[in-house]
Amino acid sequence: KRPMNAFMVWAKDERRKILQAFPDMHNSNISKILGSRWKSMSNQEKQPYYEEQARLSKIHLEKYPNYK
């Protein structure tokens, strides 16, 4: 399994927050909201998630050096 990208790292927690506020919301609607919110974020706001992506990718590479 591939490591999560920056959007997926961010969306994991955000999806949970949306589901708590709107438990009956369909997954497709949540995904649209998440995509819209991510697009509206500045690069500075996204930076911690890109850093986490890099950390996860490094761990993945160490654990699975032959993964293609």
Rank of each mutant, 00 (worst) to 15 (best):
D13E: 14
N5L: 01
A6D: 04
A11G: 04
W38T: 00
P65Y: 09
K58H: 07
A6E: 00
K46Y: 00
D13C: 00
H60S: 12
R55F: 03
S42G: 06
F22Y: 14
K63D: 13
I18D: 00
K17E: 04
S31W: 13
P48K: 06
K32D: 09
P65W: 04
K12V: 11
I33M: 07
Y67A: 15
F22S: 13
S42I: 07
A21Q: 15
N27W: 14
E45P: 00
S42M: 04
S36T: 14
N43E: 15
I33T: 04
D24A: 07
P23T: 01
Y49Q: 12
K58M: 10
Y49K: 07
F7E: 03
Y49A: 02
K58P: 08
G35L: 05
P65K: 12
N29P: 01
S40F: 11
N5V: 03
V9S: 07
L61Q: 14
L19A: 12
S57Q: 08
K46S: 03
S28I: 09
N66E: 13
K17V: 04
D24F: 06
L19I: 12
R55C: 04
S40T: 10
F7R: 02
Y67H: 14
D13A: 03
M25R: 01
E45H: 03
W10G: 01
K12H: 10
D13Y: 01
A54V: 08
G35S: 14
M25C: 04
R16F: 08
Y50S: 03
K39F: 03
I30L: 12
V9M: 07
Y64V: 14
R55N: 09
S36P: 13
E52V: 05
V9H: 02
Y50D: 03
R15W: 15
Y50E: 07
K58Q: 08
M8D: 15
M41P: 03
M41L: 11
D24M: 04
K12G: 08
M41V: 02
E51T: 04
E51Y: 04
P48W: 05
K32T: 07
S36F: 09
Q47P: 00
K68G: 11
H60P: 10
Q44N: 08
W10N: 03
L19T: 10
R15P: 01
H26D: 15
I33V: 06
E62Y: 05
I18E: 00
A6N: 02
I59K: 14
Q53N: 08
L56W: 06
R55W: 02
I18P: 00
D13V: 04
K12Q: 13
M8L: 08
F22N: 15
M4G: 06
I30F: 03
K39V: 04
K17G: 03
E62V: 06
P3L: 07
K46C: 02
A11V: 03
A21L: 08
S57G: 09
S40H: 15
I33H: 05
N66A: 09
I30D: 02
Q44H: 09
I59D: 13
H60Q: 09
K12E: 11
N66G: 12
V9Y: 05
L19G: 03
A11I: 05
V9K: 02
R2S: 13
S57H: 14
S36Y: 01
D13W: 00
I18H: 01
S57E: 15
L61T: 12
M4R: 10
Y67I: 12
K68A: 12
G35D: 15
P3M: 06
Y50K: 09
N43L: 11
E52M: 08
I33D: 01
S31Y: 11
L19W: 01
K39W: 11
K32L: 06
M25A: 08
E14W: 14
F22L: 06
R16G: 09
S57M: 12
H26M: 13
S40N: 12
Y64I: 14
A11Q: 04
S28C: 08
I33W: 09
I18N: 02
K63W: 06
Q44I: 10
P3C: 02
E14T: 09
M4D: 13
A21P: 03
D24N: 09
Q53A: 15
N5A: 02
L34H: 01
G35V: 12
E62I: 05
P3G: 07
Y50G: 05
P23M: 01
Q53I: 13
S40I: 06
F7N: 02
D24I: 01
I18F: 03
P3E: 14
M8F: 05
I33P: 00
P3R: 12
K63C: 09
M25P: 01
S28G: 10
E62L: 07
A11H: 00
K1Y: 12
A6Y: 02
Y67Q: 14
F7S: 01
K46D: 02
A21H: 11
S42L: 02
M41Q: 02
P3K: 15
S31N: 14
Y67D: 15
L56H: 09
W38N: 00
E14S: 05
K58A: 12
H26Q: 12
L34T: 00
A21I: 13
E62N: 10
L56F: 05
S42V: 03
A6C: 00
K17W: 00
K32P: 01
M8I: 06
S57F: 08
Y50C: 04
H26T: 14
V9N: 05
Q47E: 10
K17L: 03
S42K: 10
K68L: 06
M41Y: 01
G35F: 00
E45R: 01
Y64N: 15
L34R: 00
K32E: 13
L56Q: 10
Y49G: 02
Y50F: 11
E52H: 03
F22G: 05
P48E: 03
R55G: 04
P65R: 09
S57T: 13
R2W: 04
R2E: 08
S28A: 13
